[in-house]
Design a protein around this nucleic acid. Structure first.
Length: 279
DNA sequence: CTTTCGTCCTGACTGC
DNA sequence: TGCAGTCAGGACGAAA
């Protein structure tokens, strides 16, 4: 499930391989992703050179030499696969890009929650999905003051508020759980009470959890590419996520006496937390 | 306005 | 063995 660190790792891996490359062939194998692919997408991409690859929240933005931007969102099961030379398409390979040095880039998405769109760069800021996004969590403009201001008065649990992309852009279920653990804040706490000192703890916790995950992604893979050619996914040991009944990693509480990591459901999503550490 | 909830999709897993 | 049911999750639109 790609969140910001995975998308950032995909971005770096893609940049290392196809920056400055030209698309010489684009094969579209199915068009019904989360939204229908733009009309005539392959023909609009062939011949274009990739001039830059940026990321906004969980969106990959491939800037092309004709002023268009290829936007890619991986949804929850989207993957980018790199290979040398033309590959036989496999199941759920929806788009295959060939570049002029013979690299193939395959967008594969089992559940088809991903999206791909082609947008003029000067219309990007007004693109609805991007226009409503909050600050980048790793950016200098994401500060305790800014977070406090957007949480002020909010009656939802802090867990739900942090999943709201308007509050902070790019966090998903896993890193919200991990950041709240790191900051020692209960996921049930109302967002409006996470201001001042608690926001002073939470903001660095979010940045730290994301930074560490990106570092693992970069260091555990050679050029961010696995042997299989898959970009951006990496083994990561969570402190609490997915660890119901097990010890919370790096926590000094008496987990055995208290039953270990607890799981609860908020907004129909699993939350994992340590009730001793997180208040 | 704010907040919650259902929906999309398919593979992995559980339980009978 | 087989099959039905549940779960996972990001983003959005509808409902409350």
């Amino acid at each position: 499930m790609p969140e910001l660190p995975e998308v950032e790792t995909v971005r770096r891996g893609l940049a290392a391989k196809i920056l400055g490359q030209r698309f010489v062939a684009v094969e579209q194998r199915r068009a019904d992703l989360r939204y229908p692919l733009p009309d005539d997408l392959p023909n609009r991409l062939v011949g274009r050179t990739v001039e830059a690859i940026d990321r906004r929240a969980k969106y990959l933005l491939l800037r092309l030499d004709d002023g268009m931007v290829l936007m890619i969102h991986l949804g929850m099961s989207g993957r980018m696969l790199l290979a040398d030379g033309r590959q036989d398409p496999g199941p759920h390979d929806h788009l295959i890009f060939m570049t002029d040095d013979g690299t193939s880039v395959t967008f594969n998405d089992v559940r088809r929650f991903g999206m791909v769109d082609l947008v003029s760069s000067n219309a990007l800021a007004a693109y609805p999905a991007l226009a409503s996004l909050g600050p980048e969590p790793l950016g200098d403009d994401f500060t305790p003051t800014v977070l406090s201001a957007s949480l002020n008065g909010k009656r939802t649990p802090i867990k739900a508020a942090l999943l709201d992309q308007r509050v902070v852009a790019g966090l998903g279920n896993i890193y919200v759980c991990e950041a709240l653990f790191d900051a020692g804040i209960s996921p049930r706490r109302l967002a409006k009470t996470v201001v001042g000192a608690r926001a002073e703890r939470l903001v660095p916790a979010i940045k730290s959890v994301l930074d560490r995950a990106i570092a693992v992604g970069g260091s555990s893979l050679r050029d961010y590419v696995q042997a299989s050619g898959e970009l951006g996914y990496f083994q990561h040991e969570w402190a609490v996520y997915g660890r119901e009944g097990q010890p919370c990693k790096g926590c000094d509480c008496d987990w055995e006496a208290n039953g270990g990591v607890q799981r609860l459901v908020q907004s129909n999503r699993s939350t994992f937390y340590c009730p001793r550490r997180q208040r």
